[in-house]
Design a protein around this nucleic acid. Structure first.
Length: 279
DNA sequence: AGAATAACCTGCGTGC
DNA sequence: TGCACGCAGGTTATTC
């Protein structure tokens, strides 16, 4: 479910609904997600229970409480539901953060997500936590430039699709938006990363930003639906141009969209619009 | 060091 | 109806 745009939408939703509010109860139903959920989590958060700020780094969410920072990741299948306090838990509901009459519930069937506690504040956690400190450049930061992508990709023989997913040049771009951005930039996904020209890097940087921004806007338009109940409302209305559309006509040239497997993951592209060579 | 692979999980759709 | 299989939005650890 969550790539950067979805996490951003969730982050904004949580901030709007809960920033400044006092946590009243924590219920942990799951011992391990990707890593063990810390045993003393409840007591640690409740030692300083006001939620001060909510930040995103890559696909991580940071919930800054007075006592420290709750680090969340939604993995492949995670969602954060905003429900009335006392809503009966369903299967795969792993963690409740109760703020008086409302609660935030972490739901994650595949359990690739994470919930970790760090006693530092959000800023320090962002800068020093082992899972965050080595993360690369944010796509909306000033550091994500064509020149940066160009330099980072030199000598790389790996396919550009995999290079973007690797997080070496930019973070937060997942499998869906990587296909979408490469399509918009008219770059073949199997092209060697090191063969990208500076103009190609310029297009890719631009289109990664634009694709993510469009997705955030689409999610934001039904943010309330997303956060309130069904959990999937926000981004499915996003118009995918190639992702999941194998065999359907390219929206630009009507050539059938193709799918290929790269490192076990599906990539969708238009064989006519996205050429391997030059520019 | 870069690149490929395995691993962690559950659920859903498909085809036999 | 049951079962095997492949597939799914992510990331880390291991191996070559």
């Amino acid at each position: 479910m969550p790539e950067l745009p979805e996490v951003e939408v969730v982050s904004r939703g949580v901030s709007e609904a809960f920033a400044g509010r006092r946590l009243t109860r924590v219920v942990r139903r799951c011992e391990r997600l990707r890593w063990p959920v810390p045993a003393g989590l409840e007591a640690q958060i409740l030692a300083g229970p006001v939620l001060r700020q909510v930040l995103r780094r890559g696909k991580y969410l940071l919930l800054g409480f007075d006592a420290g920072t709750l680090l969340l990741h939604l993995g492949m299948s995670g969602s954060l539901l905003h429900l009335p306090a006392g809503a009966p838990p369903q299967k795969h509901d792993h963690l409740d953060l109760v703020f008086g009459d409302r609660l935030l519930r972490l739901h994650d069937p595949r359990r690739f997500g994470a919930a970790l506690w760090c006693s530092d504040d959000v800023t320090t956690t962002m800068a020093t936590h082992p899972l965050l400190v080595h993360l690369g450049v944010e796509p909306f930061s000033a550091a994500f430039t064509a020149r940066h992508l160009y330099e980072a990709s030199r000598e790389r023989t790996v396919a550009v699709k995999q290079f973007i997913l690797s997080g070496k040049a930019v973070i937060g771009v997942g499998n869906i938006y990587c296909s979408e951005a490469l399509f918009r930039a008219r770059i073949h996904p199997a092209r060697m990363a090191g063969s990208l020209t500076l103009p190609a890097c310029r297009r890719l940087v631009q289109e990664i930003r634009q694709t993510l921004a469009d997705a955030i806007s689409a999610g934001g338009s039904s943010l309330r639906d997303f956060v309130d109940s069904r959990g999937e409302g926000g981004y499915f209305q996003l118009q995918h141009r190639v992702y999941g559309r194998a065999g359907q006509p390219c929206p630009v040239c009507a050539t059938p969209i193709r799918v290929l497997k790269q490192q076990g993951r599906s990539t969708f592209f238009c064989p006519k619009c996205q050429r391997r060579a030059n520019h």
